[in-house]
């Protein structure tokens, strides 16, 4: 089971991340989870093979201060989250403007859960061909 070491808010997240990095923690990654009503953003840090996780709860659609000024490595993952979840990070060192992973004509925020819409997997083309034949 994952341990969440600390809850942070939009005001404290940058300061907390910077103080962790100052005390020789290594930035591992960030994870965003779409919890339907809100987003959970986890900040994972590591020291001596121990994971230290911060959790930030963000209301949709989400505007979050970027930690990329304190930690350059966060830049890439923050740009990815911008693409996939449509969360806006303010103060990014390099902003790809939501087209880091996605092409200009790609669907917007493809990883977000849309209420009432369910993605179904495509059936085998062989089965489809039969249906048409019938």
């Amino acid at each position: 089971m994952m341990k969440i070491n600390e809850e942070v808010s939009l005001e404290t997240v940058v300061g907390k991340a910077a103080s962790l990095l100052f005390s020789e923690y290594r930035f591992v990654t960030m994870t965003t989870v779409d919890c339907d009503e809100y987003f959970d953003i986890y900040y994972h840090f590591d020291k001596n093979y121990e994971l230290y996780t911060l959790r930030l709860k963000v209301e949709k659609p989400g505007v979050v201060p970027s930690i990329s000024k304190a930690c350059f490595a966060a830049l890439i993952i923050e740009n990815e989250i911008q693409d996939l979840f449509g969360i806006t990070f303010t103060g990014l060192v390099v902003d790809y403007e939501k087209h880091f992973l996605l092409a200009p004509d790609a669907p917007e925020k493809p990883f977000c859960h849309v209420p009432g819409v369910k993605i179904t997997t495509v059936d085998s083309p062989a089965a489809k061909k039969d249906e048409v034949a019938k």
Binding site: V28, T29, T31, T32, D34, A73, L75, I76, I77
Partner: peptide, 14 residues
């Protein structure tokens, strides 16, 4: 509900 992967190359880009 969520499956997230951070691969090593992702960390090595910076």
């Amino acid at each position: 509900a969520r499956c997230r992967v951070r691969t090593p190359t992702f960390a090595n880009v910076a």
